[in-house]
Design a protein around this nucleic acid. Structure first.
Lengths: 166, 166
DNA sequence: GCAGATGTTCTGCTGTGCAGACGTTCTGTC
DNA sequence: GACAGAACGTCTGCACAGCAGAACATCTGC
């Protein structure tokens, strides 16, 4: 795996390592959730609907990083499977609340177990301590990045580079 | 951001945090590489062609987690931009070596700077020490997961769960 | 020499993000 | 109360990417 003889090998690239881990997790998760509508996204929707009680579909989209047009048929499928229901919000008839059914809650409990195994599988190269440290750091990065619109700053960085190299 | 009142909030979910960070990085990277053919994937191909001298297109695909049909037109675009060339391998005329041109190497040097800024942007919530620790752990996870076909094991995990819950 | 395997490309199929349009509903202003 | 503008959800069309399968050229083993 390790490529010798170069100062910066591909295995040292942050983007590459992040992509490898992300793809492995998605693959493991999709296998773990089985025939759940929407695959690993379906799980996240179900999980969020139980744990965060999203106040609208679009809030859910923002949280999960899913496009709103995708969320429409994702919820269609989950609703057809009786795992969640769309309820009109009492305060605003434009918005729909996404609420898990009892079936959905039961299913989520079972899925949580499977997902924990998938996660453990992906992280099986680390000790218990290192896993906790890694997850903690990841959580901090996610929390920070989530409060930040990445694009403008990235563009700024590009401009800085352009200025410094021209 | 933090959701209070639940034992396991969305922000504690490994898959969610991983997805947030990955999407933020891809977005920042795509912005950083500008008009490079293939966006952040184009960078990885260019980087790998310089640093790892891949012995074939399919080896490159496996390394980068890119489908071989995608690699075809990705290389078409990079070749059209004179950043890489496909050379027939001397040992096997079926395979093509992917070699960066001088233009490609120059471009890579510039892109490396931009990418370092994008990476720093995504990790800006961590101290210098924590960044190093995070990247080290990530590298270890990627290295381990990469030697492992995730799907069979995940399926095994699913069967274990099914056996334990039935 | 020949059957089977491998590398690359091409063609569909599917899933996903994105932009835009539309109908419904809410909000603020007159 | 009426109206313009904004927000929410849905639908359509486009683009990109993964995946499966086929086709073609080439290599390997018998």
């Amino acid at each position: 795996m390790a490529i010798i003889g170069r100062v910066t090998a591909l295995s040292d690239d942050f983007g590459w390592t992040l992509g490898v881990v992300f793809r492995a997790f998605v693959k493991a998760t999709n296998a773990a959730v089985g025939d759940l509508p929407g695959g690993h996204r379906g799980y996240q929707v179900l999980s969020a609907s139980v744990r965060d009680r999203p106040e609208s579909q679009s809030a859910l989209c923002r949280q999960l990083g899913v496009d709103r047009t995708v969320m429409t048929y994702l919820l269609d499928d989950l609703e057809a499977a009786s795992l969640v229901v769309r309820k009109p919000a009492p305060t605003d008839r434009r918005t729909r609340l996404v609420v898990a059914t009892d079936t959905g809650r039961d299913r989520l409990r079972e899925l949580d177990l499977r997902l924990a195994h998938a996660e453990a599988h992906v992280l099986s190269g680390l000790s218990e301590e290192d896993r906790a440290a890694f997850k903690g750091l990841l959580r901090r990065v996610a929390g920070h990045v989530n409060e930040l619109d990445p694009v403008p700053s990235a563009c700024q960085a590009v401009q800085d580079i352009a200025a410094s190299t021209s």
